[in-house]
Nucleic acid binder design. Sequence first.
DNA 1: ATCCTCATGTAACACGTTACATGATTAC
DNA 2: GTAATCATGTAACGTGTTACATGAGGAT
Lengths: 185, 185
Amino acid sequence: MGSASKIPTTSYAVLGLLGLGQMSGYDVVRLVEQTIAHFWTINKSHVYRELPRLEDLGYVKGTSVRQERLPDKRIYKQTAAGRRALVEWLNSPEYEPNRFRSELLVKLFFASEMDPQNLKNMLKDYRERAVESRDQFERIVDGLSSDPQSAFIRATALMGLRSHEATIAWVDEISKVLQMERKKR
Amino acid sequence: MGSASKIPTTSYAVLGLLGLGQMSGYDVVRLVEQTIAHFWTINKSHVYRELPRLEDLGYVKGTSVRQERLPDKRIYKQTAAGRRALVEWLNSPEYEPNRFRSELLVKLFFASEMDPQNLKNMLKDYRERAVESRDQFERIVDGLSSDPQSAFIRATALMGLRSHEATIAWVDEISKVLQMERKKR
DNA sequence: ATCCTCATGTAACACGTTACATGATTAC
DNA sequence: GTAATCATGTAACGTGTTACATGAGGAT
């Protein structure tokens, strides 16, 4: 039953997207951006490396397509084995822990060496970006609203919304405190 | 003035930690875990690669130390040039955007292929981990409470706290909805 | 004319993780 | 006594990012 070769999350993500229809690498890249990028980025080069790997495993089947004006391309579709592998992965209860990195937080950690005005500007900018993202996710969530088929997709978008809201609230919370610290000195 | 060679955030993080006192690579690794790991992980091997690089740049100075029972080691300290480079980086207003990855969210995105019970278990587990993390951060934040020197460190810990709180609230929010979806079918 | 975007990918390099090594001490 | 932890690192490999390539079509 179990597939011998263990493949990383990125491979399953590509495989999963190919379940939505056959696509070229280029299409996958665009689709990633529109769907999972906010919790799982995959860039172009990586996609193009994953596709042959999935093909070697027999999880997808690629076909070369000639085009006139545009460069020739290769389109891929899930195989039955690919679908099985995907479902098996989905149903295994394990998942790697979340990864989060923030250069802003690194700078904040060392901010005692920082010019207070610069810190203030950076936090302002950070907040503004978060507001923009929050608004985007709000629109997305509202757009998917009541469609029961998209409940899971909506749930992931909702995470985006909530986490940006939390970020905004956090900036406001610490701005007050850091402001005070500056006065005290 | 400006340093010609641009180095990544990880290098500055190591450099910054070496500002807290001279350390071996091993010490840096432990310190990372106790301080910045929740928004900027750096593993052992990476630390050991950064140290010679920082030394080549003249930002730190390493000294070999003989030990009797323990393996010999090399301890590093910030140089004046290193400190300048760090401050310059801190005061530049740029920062790379946050990166976030979550295999759980990838699985959730494709969860229409998933056994509902498994999804339920995964979300339960995810929530439990978030609760644990939240509690840890709560203790940390409370521990650093009123010390003005640690305001910035406290701010980063507070981000950990708030984001885990948001995660917990999000799980509760979507659990209700997904439950309903299941009934409707 | 020139620059930007679409549409395909490849190549090189840097970052990040896992596995390997080694010996002393501490815990059970 | 055996296993885990401390205390140092190194080597190998896999992931992820940036730069390079190429030509058509549309915008200014």
